[in-house]
Design a protein around this nucleic acid. Structure first.
Lengths: 108, 108
DNA sequence: CAATGTGCCTCGCAAAATGAGGGATGTCAA
DNA sequence: TTGACATCCCTCATTTTGCGAGGCACATTG
């Protein structure tokens, strides 16, 4: 998968995922890997900065949770503002796809 | 249109366009603007470097043509290697769209 | 006890789009 | 004829983003 195509789609992916419920970083990476059948491995160097940026803008919020074995996980949960933003991003995404499709032609 | 989404899609757009025949820079910009109804204006700072890079890799070739009024235009034409590359890029694009769609959910 | 898995993160680098700029020539109306 | 606008090429510094590599800590398992 061309890295450059991914650029800008990460927030969309993250917010979409978090719509299903709070998740922690490692879990997000594994979920993406599994759902794409290994095609796409979200990298930590892309994930955490993106997560932190979404938190800084209050589109998501985070909280630590202690597991039974004593280890900590940082969960991220989508916020109202994040839902609104996601909705806008989705529209933009669809427009973008339509636009490219118009030039590239319909899928083979 | 979110700038970040566009990243990486420019070569795909350009090669797709040039599939229809040779074009010159200004014409490409105008064509994209018109076909998208003004939604997307390809910037010169993105276009020319992309064009030159595609030429450096011999995916496209360029030649100057003089108009009747004496002015010059630099036309870019797709090359065989460019066609092959475009084909691969298209596949990648479809994979990418499918991937994101899988997370974002089907279009509203 | 060592290797692997879980779990968080940062940092330097590379790639790409943007915005702003430069330069030159045509057309057309006042 | 002059000034504005369109046509046509391009570059450059900055910003944004992902990648790769690395660091740290602790749990589980062989």
């Amino acid at each position: 998968m061309d890295r450059e195509l991914l650029k800008g789609s990460t927030p969309l992916l993250l917010l979409s995922l978090l719509c299903e419920g709070p998740m922690y970083g490692y879990q997000i990476i594994e979920t993406v890997r599994q759902r794409t059948g290994g095609t796409y491995t979200l990298k930590e160097g892309a994930l955490y900065p993106a997560l932190h940026k979404l938190e800084a803008t209050e589109f998501i919020a985070s909280y630590w949770e202690t597991q039974e074995n004593g280890r900590e996980r940082r969960y991220y949960a989508i916020q109202p503002a994040g839902l609104a933003f996601l909705s806008a991003k989705k529209k933009e995404w669809n427009q973008f796809v339509d636009m490219v499709q118009a030039f590239v032609g319909p899928r083979a």
